[in-house]
Write a protein that binds this DNA or RNA. Structure first.
Length: 575
DNA sequence: GCCGTTTTCGGCCCGACTGTTTTCAGTCG
């Protein structure tokens, strides 16, 4: 069983224990251990083998045994026992705003509630308002919360969050009483999805800003409003929290509201260890508050190098910041070009020339064209004749570009059900590079899917694997596959793995990309663009790479453009 | 359940807001 699956089980156990009224610190230990597993820098098997797992913070003796048991047998008696005695419908209740473990326990003990439907019925008949500690207002809030849970998914894509927060941030920034403002939370950390939007500002008169905020046109409902903090539901259904502080407090609040929660807990613990106390307003030492102009100064006061928001997950960044070993994270400017783009030869919207012009306009020096292969009929995949046609067209354009720009001839070649490729070897040898991707037969068993991808990842004609899990964020799970085995195969044969920068995919994700790189796999950031503006998605791919701790050297398409043709040719020669 | 310059027990991040309460518990981030 892989570490993400085990993390899921530990998270579920923590939640089940909460519902059982267990000591909250014990519950948290499960969530902490799950978090530690998700952020493992290397693959679980090797970390068990060399005993580094037991030394991982957050994983103690008891948790270690549970993890090893799950990893080796896939089963855990305590987990099955917990699931057996908790009605499955109770977990959904935790998603209702205003309902936490304590209230759920009362509902369960007093009214015998076992599901969302039970709560709804009890609320509608007025039984909840009669319970001790509840009341009419609470009952209404719970019913509203249920309506919300039923009408909306919980999270939104990072790209949607970017779009929604922009007008709000602009309105806050232009308010005359606002000094500084920033979007915080998972959006600032560039997490792949966001649960809500967090906006922070500094001002001498925060209350005036709050008054204006709750009246913005995008606001549907005011959930809470105080002098320093307000929450609203936007018309789109997304929750947006606004917080105001003084400008002196701003750096502390910026750090605090950026999170993650686990990172903050670890930082506060560190502050206490060094004789300070840290909250969202100040860092206080034995001689009073310590002034900091920005986050960098705050980190410095705690003996740490500046930690970029993308790394703040308590996945080892604090230890690295102390030791001075934080990576010099890749930036968008490091990308010299990119691969895996589509044109109107297959299912893209734009021509070769238009895609090339768009790439140049975005400061790229080369672009790899990878239209679909012949089996991808739904996507107008190219038969062999049309591949040759496209090659001629690319040659003609390259002649025009001279040394100023270059189009590379690639293909996004389907990996067939048995792991073989969709074109004959002779044709594959004519491409500058080959992206190999799965687009069909998603429902193979894990063994079959793993064997299929391992075969592709071991094929010397494959340059890089495309979107290796096939997931679509918030829409479709990735197919069942043992990614560790695929990564091992890619490392063995020198095949690269793509970070697909399409905000619906972001596949590989940051945790797997980090582990793949640790195994020696070269990463490549590709937009999978189906139109010219799809090239802008590269920013999202860079965000994933940064969250994966990658430096420019870890990513193939940072190689200087004048060396790229040679480097691709070298790879083909070693077949 | 984890963890240790208060080290094998007794803590565990901390403040805002809400609603039900007369001083606080629960939830949330």
């Amino acid at each position: 069983m892989d570490c993400n699956r085990i993390a899921g089980i530990l998270n579920e156990m923590g939640t089940l224990l909460e519902l059982g009224g267990e000591n909250p610190f014990r519950c948290r230990a499960y969530h902490t251990a799950a978090q530690a597993l998700e952020g493992l820098p290397r693959d679980l098997v090797s970390m068990i083998a060399d005993d580094s797992l037991s030394a991982t913070p957050g994983i103690g003796e008891a948790m270690y045994k549970k993890i090893v048991q799950l990893a080796t047998t896939g089963r855990l008696g305590e987990y099955e026992e917990l699931k057996r005695k908790t009605p499955p419908g109770l977990i959904a209740l935790l998603r209702v705003p205003g309902l936490g473990p304590k209230k759920i326990k009362v509902l369960r003990d007093e009214l015998g509630i076992r599901s969302l439907a039970d709560v709804k019925a009890a609320g509608e008949s007025g039984k909840i308002a009669d319970l001790k500690g509840f009341g009419a207002r609470t009952q209404t809030k719970i019913l509203e919360g249920i309506a919300f849970v039923e009408s909306m998914g919980e999270r939104i894509l990072l790209s949607s969050a970017d779009r929604l927060v922009q007008p709000i941030l602009a309105a806050v920034r232009t308010h005359p009483k606002v000094i500084r403002a920033e979007a915080c939370g998972s959006l600032r950390r560039r997490a792949e999805t966001c649960g809500d939007l967090d906006v922070l500002f500094s001002s001498d008169d925060p209350e005036a800003v709050m008054d204006a905020f709750v009246k913005l046109p995008d606001v549907a409902t005011v959930l809470a409003k105080g002098p320093t903090r307000s929450s609203v539901r936007l018309i789109d259904g997304v929750q947006c929290d606004l917080r105001g502080v003084s400008d002196t407090e701003y750096p502390f609040a910026l750090h605090y509201f950026t999170g993650s929660k686990q990172h903050n807990i670890a930082i506060r613990r560190r502050a206490i260890e060094r004789g300070f106390s840290l909250n969202e307003y100040a860092l206080s030492g034995p001689h009073g508050p310590v002034q900091c102009r920005d986050e960098a100064e705050l980190f410095a006061k705690l003996g740490l190098a500046y930690i970029p928001p993308e790394l703040r997950e308590d996945h080892g960044e604090i230890e690295a910041a102390e030791a001075g070993t934080l990576p010099k994270l890749i930036t968008r400017d490091d990308l010299t070009g990119t691969f895996h783009c589509h044109t109107d030869y297959s299912d893209g919207a734009n021509t070769l020339a238009e895609m090339a012009a768009a790439a140049q306009a975005r400061g790229l020096h080369y672009l790899g064209i990878a239209d679909h292969s012949r089996s991808a009929r739904y996507a107008n995949g190219l038969d062999i004749g049309r591949v040759h046609e496209q090659w001629k067209a690319i040659d003609a354009l390259n002649k025009k570009f001279g040394s100023s720009f270059h189009l590379f001839k690639g293909t996004e070649c389907d990996i067939l059900a048995d792991g073989s490729l969709d074109y004959p070897d002779e044709l594959l040898d004519g491409f500058d590079y080959v992206v190999a991707s799965v687009h069909s037969h998603f429902h193979l068993s894990q063994e079959e899917m793993t064997a299929r991808l391992v075969r592709a990842a071991s094929n010397p004609r494959v340059t890089m694997l495309g979107h290796p899990t096939g997931r679509l964020l918030l829409a479709r799970e990735g197919y069942a596959v043992d990614l560790s085995a695929v990564i091992d195969a890619a490392a063995q044969s020198g095949v690269m793995i793509e970070i697909n920068a399409n905000p619906h995919r972001l596949d590989l994700d940051a945790n797997w990309a980090r582990r793949a790189r640790a195994k020696g796999v070269m990463i490549v950031i590709n937009p999978d663009a189906h139109a010219t503006d799809g090239l802008d998605d590269l920013d999202y791919g860079v965000a994933v790479a940064r969250r994966a701790w990658l430096e420019a050297n870890d990513v193939w398409n940072t190689i200087p453009s004048n060396q790229m043709a040679k480097r691709l040719a070298e790879r083909r020669r070693v077949r």
